[in-house]
Design a protein around this nucleic acid. Structure first.
Lengths: 207, 207
DNA sequence: CGCTAATCTAGAACAAGTTCCAGACTTGAT
DNA sequence: ATCAAGTCTGGAACTTGTTCTAGATTAGCG
């Protein structure tokens, strides 16, 4: 990635209307191609063509394929989060609500398994140059989980539990996407890790 | 990957001595290059040259870079497992012993962060064509954890907990390798998820 | 409007993973 | 020892992510 491209990404504000439209077209093309054939089907030349943009321009907006797919994930997560806000989970305990929320997200991913493949593979393959963007995704995920728990001021213990839940969520998705775990297996793993929430709710003293 | 290469890998038995030596040289070269510069530094041409083998031969033994690195991980895990057998963890509870074991493995990885990077990235990036090999790694990891727990016949509950621990282990490693989590953070996550073990040890009735 | 800097385009060029090929070498069976 | 089948070698070729360049277009400003 060139230095100027890095700067262009860092200082994201102040895009003209046409630039904003280009960005949208690129993200749309990315999601579309990903939905068809997953990570491998998102080929930079094809994204550029489908978005009606030169290859160099694509790289100005997203300095690598990984950046592009992580940005695509940010986009999708935002949709998901607003959907979830409108229809909050209904479980009695925090653990139930979190599990319910994650299973809902999981079902959404099952509807577009190729897209899920592209996004999750990009996320876990990302190296340090994509850390800020991956971190954003992580914060979005955390926000969704905390929403489901109904917490505004989580304790350090609870934050640790949320982190572990996110770890499990990502890794379980990978095993499912690579065909090494069934949907039922993922469900069990999610429910298992969510028990940590109840655990941290009880005793919050011992170091 | 060609069909014949797939067959060569599937039916691994009966390698001549020279072939076994070649395989060793390749794995050694892979680990060496990985130790230097991580995933990107393991370039197939360089591996072939360092192992004194033609590029086509390298691909006959390992049908892709991912296969090669996952095999490298199998190799390293085997070392680790035998080391751990000789010096078992000393904690009182199963959770303590597992956490101790994983932290020991983590410290080993910290000594070769580039190698860790190459192996873990390959593992999580692997697609379906590498599932059998990745599954082997997973079983090795499970065996190490069960050893630490001191269990021969784990309950389904306990197996679920172990699965979640593995998820957390892999994902926490990724966040550490990509610089998004500190060593201390990883330690906390491991200790947090290990509490699941104590949880499953207690009540093993409710569905 | 007219200028200047930034942006965009088309396309060549480069890098590394992967595939393919023709010929030399090994191996195993007879 | 010899032959057939399988394996290895060196190297070219192909694919796709990434970079670079020269010229056209656009945006913002006086």
């Amino acid at each position: 990635m060139t230095a100027e491209a890095k700067a262009a990404i860092a200082a994201s504000p102040a895009l003209t209307e046409r630039q904003e439209a280009r960005r949208r077209r690129i993200l749309h093309a990315s999601a579309q191609l990903a939905s068809r054939g997953g990570f491998d089907a998102v080929q930079m030349r094809e994204v550029a063509e489908a978005a009606g943009v030169a290859l160099g321009t694509l790289y100005r907006y997203f300095p690598s394929k990984i950046h592009l797919l992580v940005a695509t994930m940010q986009d999708q997560l935002q949709h998901l989060h607003s959907t979830l806000r409108k229809h909050p989970p209904s479980g009695d305990s925090a653990a139930q609500r979190v599990a319910e929320t994650l299973m809902r997200a999981f079902r959404a991913l099952q509807r577009e398994p190729h897209l899920a493949d592209a996004m999750v593979r990009a996320l876990t393959f990302a190296d340090r140059s994509v850390s800020p963007e991956v971190d954003t995704v992580s914060r979005q995920t955390t926000a969704i989980i905390l929403d489901a728990m109904g917490l505004d001021h989580p304790s350090p213990r609870q934050l640790s539990a949320v982190r572990v839940i996110e770890h499990t969520w990502h890794s379980a998705l990978i095993t499912w996407l690579s065909g090494r775990a069934s949907i039922a297996q993922v469900k069990i793993d999610i429910e298992t890790v969510c028990r940590l929430i109840d655990l941290t709710a009880e005793d919050d003293d011992s170091a």
